[in-house]
């Protein structure tokens, strides 16, 4: 287990996340892509903390912040999905040609 190997795994997760977020049409699937990107970033943060920073506690703090971002993204994402579904009956990006209400 080396830092390089961990970073490549993190990059792979991030890349799959980018693919998912760009290619999917359903809102929930797009959110899954975003979460995967954060997943890769989190792995890289922990890898740097464990192998390159001498175990500085701030490295773990960064991971906590990424987890917070995930929670915020999920909560606001689900709320927006419900809101859009109420108003437009839309569950896919293609049904939202206009952003104005």
């Amino acid at each position: 287990m080396t830092l390089q190997a961990l970073l490549v795994v993190g990059a792979a997760l991030f890349g799959i996340g980018v693919y998912g977020a760009l290619s999917q049409q359903t809102f929930v699937m797009i959110m899954m892509g975003l979460e995967l990107m954060l997943n890769g970033a989190m792995l890289a943060a922990v890898a740097f903390w464990a192998m390159s920073s001498g175990g500085a506690p701030k490295g773990q703090l960064l991971t906590v912040i990424i987890m917070t971002v995930m929670a915020v993204e999920a909560a606001i994402g689900f709320a927006l999905i419900i809101g859009i579904y109420r108003i437009r009956k839309a569950d896919m990006t293609e049904k939202l040609k206009r952003l104005r209400a």
Binding site: A12, F14, G15, I16, G17, V18, Y19, G20, S23, G40
Partner: peptide
């Protein structure tokens, strides 16, 4: 999307 994903992976790796 595929190209973007591959580029993101390649660049970061």
């Amino acid at each position: 999307a595929k190209i973007a994903g591959v580029f993101a992976f390649a660049g970061l790796a």
